[in-house]
């Protein structure tokens, strides 16, 4: 399907972009464009038909990487730069690895971190314009037949999963996003509070509001002894969407786990903390057996659908392996 024709405005400041975006109406949608990857996909599928695009790439100062106090990523930093930046790789390896395994090299060269976090679900019902009519949300709920790639946790109302894999690592690092509007300045929201369970009829799967622009992604300073690992499990070795992905950040005192952050992606509507697994690890000596128990706890609440039961043992294994990998990470 060909994209509809649209107007194009190069924004030079965040305020200007926010002002242009605030003009959006149902009849004349105005949509922000950074790397444009998910946007072109949605336009080509007929899911989005903007009257005007606001080009954010012409805004200066939104493509910077700052490691002074934790990590600050400008909204326009590409996934490729996150993968290749040695400062990020040395301190936030789970994020580097998540970025390195997202999409294809070509897409990583264009896709921005903000666009990645704001992309829509990959659910094949969502991606087909045929399903965007009356009763779409009901269809998308547990009744949807082809649920191989859908949620196995927290899926009673909606089984679509968030598409971003860097989000899994970012939530594990307790990241926040900065949102700027024209009138009310900017606000900072924890990424774990930012995402909303995807719904067919909603324009976003997050708390971003009309007229807001995501400007930065920030990670607070890490404990100097923090170790981390990330694993994205796919069906094939080359580029693929995940069955699940897991990020683990551990603070170790010798062999004992002092703090643990375990986040699972593509198994619940939003990136999900494995809280019970974290509780089992904290204060205890990390052994193969403890990792096994923690992984078991991570899937204890799983409620698989008709065709995605296979994800449960896969997720359990990936949680166990990623905990053990984090413990021995450099």
């Amino acid at each position: 399907m060909a994209m509809n024709s649209f107007e194009w405005a190069d924004a030079t400041t965040v305020e200007q972009a926010a002002g242009l975006l605030a003009e959006s109406t149902e009849q004349r949608p105005v949509i922000a464009k950074a790397g444009g990857i998910d946007l072109l996909d949605l336009m080509k599928e007929g899911i989005l038909a903007p009257a005007r695009l606001v080009n954010l790439k012409t805004i200066h100062g939104l493509d910077e990487i700052d490691t002074e106090n934790g990590l600050t990523l400008g909204a326009l930093v590409t996934l490729d730069r996150i993968d290749k930046d040695p400062r990020i790789r040395s301190r936030y390896v789970a994020l580097s690895d998540a970025a390195a395994h997202a999409a294809t090299p070509q897409v990583r060269n264009a896709a921005t971190i903000a666009g990645n976090l704001l992309q829509r679900p990959r659910c094949w019902y969502f991606r087909h314009d045929h399903f965007h009519g009356e009763g779409a949300d009901e269809m998308e709920s547990r009744g949807a037949d082809q649920n191989q790639h859908h949620a196995i946790l927290d899926n009673d109302k909606n089984a679509m999963v968030h598409a971003s894999t860097p989000a899994t690592a970012l939530v594990a690092y307790d990241a926040s996003v900065e949102l700027a509007g024209r009138a009310n300045g900017s606000r900072v929201v924890k990424l774990s509070d930012f995402f909303l369970p995807p719904e067919m009829q909603r324009a976003h799967d997050s708390g971003i509001e009309s007229g807001e622009v995501m400007t930065r992604v920030t990670i607070p300073p890490l404990n100097a002894r923090a170790k981390a690992a990330y694993h994205k499990q796919t069906e094939r070795e080359s580029y693929d969407w995940p069955i699940c992905d897991v990020a683990v950040v551990l603070t170790m005192e010798g062999q004992t786990v002092q703090n643990a952050s375990i986040v699972m992606g593509w198994v619940a509507p939003t990136p999900r903390r494995a809280s019970e697994s974290e509780r089992l690890l904290i204060g205890n000596r990390l052994t193969d057996d403890l990792a096994r128990q923690a992984a078991h706890a991570a899937v204890a609440d799983a409620t698989p659908l008709s065709k995605n039961g296979y994800k449960v043992p896969v997720l359990e294994a990936v949680v166990r392996r990623t905990i053990l990998a984090a413990a021995v990470a450099g």
Binding site: I37, L40, D41, T104, P105, Q106, N109, A110
Partner: peptide, 21 residues
């Protein structure tokens, strides 16, 4: 952007020209 047959370089880096306006 899923098959990369359309790959060109932008400033020497591979890009999917079908996903580039």
């Amino acid at each position: 952007g899923a098959c990369s047959a359309c790959t060109v370089w932008l400033d020497g880096q591979p890009a999917s020209s079908c996903m580039t306006l």
